Amino acid sequence: MPFTQTVTPEDEYILITGDGSILSAEELLAWSVSTVREAQDHAHTRLLVDNRTLTVELTPHEVMVASDQLFEMEIQAKGLRFAVVSCEKTRDMSRFIETTFTNRSASYKRFDSLEDALNWLLA
């Protein structure tokens, strides 16, 4: 099943709820670009991403390919802050994505609960 996103603008952040599966570097890139576009469209820099029902089934190489393409677009320079609650089934891949994005200077952190993610995001 492809992925979907629901966007809910809040006063201090945007809530993005993902569902489905990301199965390729191209899909991860599309998800990321869409997320960045939503932030820009709503003039927000803080994103609370609820991906508890979105699985990410990629190889480390696919994550690296997608992240390289993202950072060629200079998303780290946009000042975005991502607090991501990941799917329990793909927790290890979510940690790898966090490490990869953080190593490229993105403000990106994964969490196991929405409460923890929101507290970090608004701190």
Results as ranks from 00 to 15, higher is better:
Met64Lys: 15
Glu26Ser: 14
Lys89Met: 08
Thr45Val: 11
Gly18Ile: 00
Ile14Gly: 04
Glu74Leu: 07
Ile16Trp: 03
Glu38Gly: 04
Thr35Ser: 11
Pro9Tyr: 13
Glu10Cys: 06
Thr90Ile: 02
Glu115Asn: 10
Val49Cys: 08
Met93Trp: 13
Arg37Asn: 14
Ser67Gly: 02
Glu88Gly: 09
Ala77Met: 13
Val85Met: 03
Leu48Phe: 06
Ala39Asp: 14
Ala66Pro: 06
Val56Asp: 05
Val49Thr: 11
His42Val: 06
Leu121Thr: 04
Met64Phe: 09
Thr35Val: 03
Phe82Ser: 02
Leu48Thr: 08
Gln40Glu: 13
Asp68Met: 09
Val56Phe: 08
Val56Ala: 08
Asn103Thr: 05
Phe101Tyr: 11
Ser67Glu: 13
Met1His: 10
Asp19Asn: 12
Val85Ser: 07
Pro9Cys: 11
Gln69Glu: 13
Thr90Asp: 02
Val85Asn: 07
Gln5Trp: 02
His42Asn: 12
Val63Pro: 01
Gly18Arg: 01
Thr59Val: 00
Leu29Ile: 12
Tyr13Asn: 06
Ile22Ala: 06
Asp11Met: 06
Leu48Lys: 03
Leu58Cys: 06
Leu54Glu: 06
Pro60Asp: 13
His61Gln: 15
Ser34Ile: 09
Asp68Gln: 13
Ala106Gln: 12
Asp68Phe: 06
Thr53Pro: 01
Ile22Leu: 09
Asp50Ser: 03
Val56Ser: 07
Leu15Val: 06
Gln69Ser: 11
Asp112Ile: 02
Val63Thr: 07
Phe3Leu: 01
Val33Asn: 12
His44Lys: 15
Ala106Gly: 08
Val36Ile: 15
Ala30Cys: 05
Val85Thr: 10
Ala39Lys: 00
Leu80Cys: 09
Glu62Thr: 04
Leu23Trp: 02
Glu10Ala: 08
